[in-house]
Design a protein around this nucleic acid. Structure first.
Lengths: 149, 149
DNA sequence: TCATAATTTATAATCATTTTAATTTGACAC
DNA sequence: GTGTCAAATTAAAATGATTATAAATTATGA
């Protein structure tokens, strides 16, 4: 899936709900696409978008991100430092993916695999809870930091 | 385990690191003990502590909660609304427990069982990541709200 | 073209949290 | 007991992320 195709598909997603893909929104989406592996804060996104479109305002970035979260195009995650971070959701993925946060170096690794199918079934049966989404984060020491000790 | 015993054991935990259980800290811990099932924000805790000890300051509550998080006596969790919430950790529990957040009524249900043992093993093997703690939250519809439809 | 609604911008406001500086408390040495 | 020092607390101000507001701009459709 090329960048252009993904932009196109996000555009359709927006239009379905009668939102438009304005230049500012497109620039924001492009930044997210170009940094899929990072976990950018709103401020980060803002600064990067400013390179492409210097006249954009911070508030617009916030509103765009909020909109994209609503459309489930991006996930808003929170690692306990004061800021929210924004992740493009993989094309067609049902759930937000998981993260490994290293408490030493602060690195964040993505887990795309859905490891929670069984757990989800248990929750749905035992607690009669209809799961829509989940959020799983492990805190610990990453491989790199283990070997550095 | 009575309230007094738990206070005593938390006191020992503090002293081990040469912190003291001041009256303000004790009042804060008591509030947490009396609201184990709720998920209080710092502000909530502050208001409740104020009933017992009206002269306490908000900053002290924040500092106390921070300290208790450091000692792993309480867990700091975050459900995506703007505030952090604070949960007493069960006596001797290794990990912070899980939560079911209902997107309709906002209720939060606790899961004390550790459902992640298998997942944790996979993560340790496949990603060579040494897990210290985890955070799992499901978002969905609770039993109550399902029947109300 | 004109009118209306959506969007954006810049700025100000808000809210949670942290820092600061001054004061208080408590433990210990004398 | 008194004096001293470090830890803890208080109140107030500062910070930083996020949201709301009002005015200006842009797109849309009759």
């Amino acid at each position: 899936m090329t960048v252009e195709n993904r932009i196109e598909s996000i555009k359709k997603e927006l239009q379905k709900q009668s939102y438009k893909l304005t230049p500012q929104r497109e620039a924001t989406v492009r930044v997210l696409l170009e940094h899929e592996e990072d976990h950018l804060s709103a401020e980060d996104v803002y600064l990067l978008v400013k390179d492409k479109a210097p006249e954009i305002g911070l508030a617009t970035v916030y509103r765009t991100l909020e909109l994209l979260v609503e459309l489930k195009v991006v996930d808003k995650i929170n690692f306990g430092d004061g800021v929210s971070r924004f992740d493009l959701r993989k094309e067609g993925a049902e759930h937000s993916h998981h993260h490994l946060v290293c408490v030493e170096c602060g690195s964040v690794t993505e887990i795309v695999e859905d490891l929670l199918e069984d757990v989800e079934k248990i929750v749905e049966h035992r607690w009669k809870f209809k799961v829509q989404d989940h959020r799983l984060t492990f805190h610990g020491i990453c491989e790199q930091c283990q070997s550095n000790d």
